[in-house]
C-alpha cells in the first residue's frame, strides 16, 4: 500500500538535477552578464536616487504645501486638504519624516512607471484579443504569486538596493492598471462607439477622442489600486535593501520593537490615506460628466 500513501514523485535525482540546472544557468547568467545588467539599469538608479534626494532634502514646509496644493487641485475641498496636512504633520512629529519621504519617493516613481507601462499594455490587451487572453493568464499568475517569490530572481540578477526593490514593486503593482484600462475601454457605451463609427472616426481617433476619455474614471480606479499595492510591496521590498518605512518595520520585527513597528505602520497607513483620498477625489471629479447620463 506504500504507493497509495506516497505520491509517485519524479525521481529525486532528476528533480535535484533540474533545480541545479536552472539555478546554475541563472547564476551563470548573473556572473556573465551581471555587470552589463547593472549598467543597463544604471540610469534608472540615478533617476531613483535623484528623486529620493529631492524628497529628502526639500524643506519640510515646502513638501507639505506641495501636497496640500495637489490635494486641492484633485479634490477642490478643504476637508481633503486638511486631512492631508494633518497626516503629514503627525508623521513628522513621530520622527519618521525622512523614512516617509523615501517611501513616498519610491511609491510615486513606481506608480508613474506603472502608469506609463500599464496604460499602453491595457490598450494592447483590449485591441488584440489573442494577446489579451495570453496577458490575462500572465496577470493572473503575477497577482497570485506570493510577492516574496519575485524577490529571488531580482536579487540574483541585481543584488540588493533601490533598483531591484523598484522592479519588484512595479511587477507587483502594475496588474491593476493594465486590467482596469482594458475594462474601462470595454465599458464604453456601445451607442457612443457606434456614433463615433458613423461619423467616420479612424481607429486612433476613436481611441483618443472617445474610448480613453470615457475610460478615465475606471483607469483612475486602477491607478488608485496600483498605488495601494505599491505601498504594500514597499514593506516587503525592504527585505532586499529598500530604505524607508518598510525598513523601519523590518527592524522592529527583527528586534521586537513594538512601538517602532506600530508608529511606522501607522505612517504607512497615513500615506495610504493621503494617496487614496487624492486619487479617489480626482476620479470622482472626472466622473462628473462621464459616468451614466443621469446622476
Amino acid at each position: 500500500m506504500d504507493w497509495l500513501l506516497n505520491f509517485p514523485q519524479l525521481d529525486a535525482g532528476f528533480l535535484l538535477n533540474t533545480k541545479r540546472f536552472i539555478d546554475g544557468s541563472l547564476k551563470a547568467l548573473t556572473r556573465g552578464y551581471g555587470q552589463s545588467i547593472e549598467e543597463f539599469f544604471y540610469p534608472l538608479l540615478q533617476v531613483l536616487t535623484f528623486f529620493e534626494q529631492v524628497m529628502i532634502r526639500a524643506p519640510w514646509p515646502l513638501v507639505i504645501i506641495a501636497f496640500a496644493a495637489i490635494a486641492w487641485y484633485a479634490a477642490r475641498r478643504w476637508t481633503e486638504v486638511a486631512a492631508v496636512v494633518l497626516t503629514l504633520v503627525l508623521i513628522g512629529l513621530m520622527g519618521l519624516w525622512k523614512e516617509t519621504m523615501m517611501t513616498i519617493s519610491l511609491v510615486l516613481s513606481a506608480t508613474i512607471f506603472s502608469i506609463a507601462v500599464g496604460i499602453p499594455l491595457g490598450i494592447v490587451m483590449n485591441r488584440y484579443k489573442r494577446v489579451g487572453a495570453a496577458m490575462k493568464g500572465v496577470l493572473d499568475v503575477m497577482q497570485t504569486m506570493p510577492p516574496f517569490v519575485y524577490l529571488i530572481p531580482v536579487v540574483m540578477l541585481l543584488g540588493i538596493g533601490r533598483v531591484p526593490g523598484f522592479i519588484a514593486v512595479v511587477v507587483y503593482a502594475v496588474p491593476p492598471i493594465i486590467r482596469l484600462t482594458d475594462l474601462g475601454i470595454r465599458l464604453v457605451d456601445k451607442e457612443v462607439l457606434e456614433a463615433a463609427d458613423a461619423f467616420g472616426c479612424s481607429r486612433s481617433q476613436k481611441l483618443w477622442k472617445v474610448q480613453m476619455p470615457l475610460a478615465i474614471p475606471t483607469v483612475m480606479a486602477g491607478i488608485n489600486q496600483t498605488i495601494m499595492m505599491a505601498l504594500g510591496m514597499v514593506v516587503i521590498a525592504s527585505m532586499i535593501g529598500v530604505q524607508g518605512l518598510g525598513l523601519s518595520v523590518l527592524q522592529a520585527i527583527n528586534n521586537q520593537y513594538f512601538t517602532q513597528g506600530i508608529f511606522s505602520g501607522f505612517a504607512i497607513v497615513g500615506i495610504a490615506i493621503i494617496f487614496d483620498r487624492i486619487s479617489q477625489a480626482y476620479g470622482r471629479r472626472l466622473q462628473q460628466h462621464r459616468g451614466t447620463t443621469h446622476e
Binding site: E191, V192, A195, A198, L214
Partner: peptide
Amino acid sequence: RRRGTAMVFQKFALLPH
C-alpha cells in the same frame, strides 16, 4: 461616412465628456 452621411441615434449617443 465623414462627408456623405450623418446619423442621429435613438439614445442620442452624445459624447458625455
